[in-house]
Design a protein around this nucleic acid. Sequence first.
DNA 1: AGCAGATGCTTTGCATGCAAAAATCTAACA
DNA 2: TGTTAGATTTTTGCATGCAAAGCATCTGCT
Lengths: 244, 244
Amino acid sequence: MSAQLEAATTALRAAILDGAFAPEERLREVAVADALKVSRTLARLAMSALETEGLLLREPNRGSRVRAFTLDEIADAIEVRGELEAMAARLLAERGLTAEVECRLSGCLTRAEALMAAGIGTPEARSDWVAMNCDFHAAVIAGSGNQAIAVAVHQVSLLPLASAGSIIFDTSQAAHGRAQLQRAHEDHRLLFEALLARQGGRAEAILREHAFRSAENRRHNLALGWNAGGLNDLPGVHLIRQSA
Amino acid sequence: MSAQLEAATTALRAAILDGAFAPEERLREVAVADALKVSRTLARLAMSALETEGLLLREPNRGSRVRAFTLDEIADAIEVRGELEAMAARLLAERGLTAEVECRLSGCLTRAEALMAAGIGTPEARSDWVAMNCDFHAAVIAGSGNQAIAVAVHQVSLLPLASAGSIIFDTSQAAHGRAQLQRAHEDHRLLFEALLARQGGRAEAILREHAFRSAENRRHNLALGWNAGGLNDLPGVHLIRQSA
DNA sequence: AGCAGATGCTTTGCATGCAAAAATCTAACA
DNA sequence: TGTTAGATTTTTGCATGCAAAGCATCTGCT
């Protein structure tokens, strides 16, 4: 993918996630091209890319529409990601930590503690926390030595709000939100401990539960925002009510 | 994806898997276009599609190369697929079998028994077996109710020889090959039993072990073919010696 | 008045053409 | 003889243009 196409795709993806297009709205190439200030060809290619990412649905000869997601789909994706990361943790425990991975993980723990000590009230602190979380999870996956896990995790993380990089901070109830982060950090710490001790089964269980509760939290927080009509403040996504 | 593009992509994918291009060989758009008898545009789009599938590697401004795979990568992908299917089995056991899924699974068991009774010496029988196997695994995944699993499985199954639809029958040692199939069938039967009894943990364990051994068998059979230089008879794939 | 068919307009799908970037070749100089 | 700089050739990346497939409206017929 070339630089221009990359830029166009990124811009279109951001526009979709920002809610620039209504759910189920038809996307015409010319409109996209105009909005992105690129040629029809690039708009078309960007749309194709986002189609394969699953953000757009294309009907033959009738263009594309933005896809809408249910809360359940997002929670499902997070659960799958968790299962994959649990597998990675097990493999990592079995093969043992390299010095590099150990350093990276403990670095994340240190950063997390510093952030929690200073408080995570500011957007910068939240951003740092997200980066730390991404780094931690990525380190586990990379350390597992199984590339297929990374591929699969990448795929399910394409769903909006399903990746380790999208965390919804519950600022309405500070104490509750803080408790969630503390618990997440404790999970990370215990996981690190299990990895050091080569306890594969334990590492797997910790990460699986970590992800499961993460999915539950996500579902809860999203539902809150949904009911409050406040989803537009999120790194937007089109949500539709879950069918049943 | 339009009909013409779909056809071109399928043709190119088949050509690559058939080994029409040497590993690491550079693929030029015009060459591909000529070979597929399509315009450069379609060739280009097809190459992009295969790039996202992971069959081609593209370097900016320098075209694409066919990607080569190691035995380990294939085994890793199978293991990940197994983990995902094990998760699906657990979810399916927890939510219980619907009449439709139960019927589909038991149908697969019946077909398998018929095939084993008649012997699987002919290509048709082998093809039937593969279809049965695909159907069985797909039924478990679909029955889990978690769409993200299907997406992730699809992704890792894109690796050549990693999908449930690619089985290497060991015809050199008939008894050994037959034992492999019998064991696979027994796994399926026991899994069905566990699902009926809502034994989620047991179902998960069975399928995970099933996949793990499948990966080992695949590694073994591929290594056999590799050493015998007989990989060209397979639904071809470019294999390179695993690095370590 | 209602429905079927036809015609025009919109939108996508594909091909060709042009420009820029990379690879290769050539030649000159150290 | 080896190396480097320039020029040429190849190859990709992108834009524009044209044709075909939908979709809507309008008209004629029952």
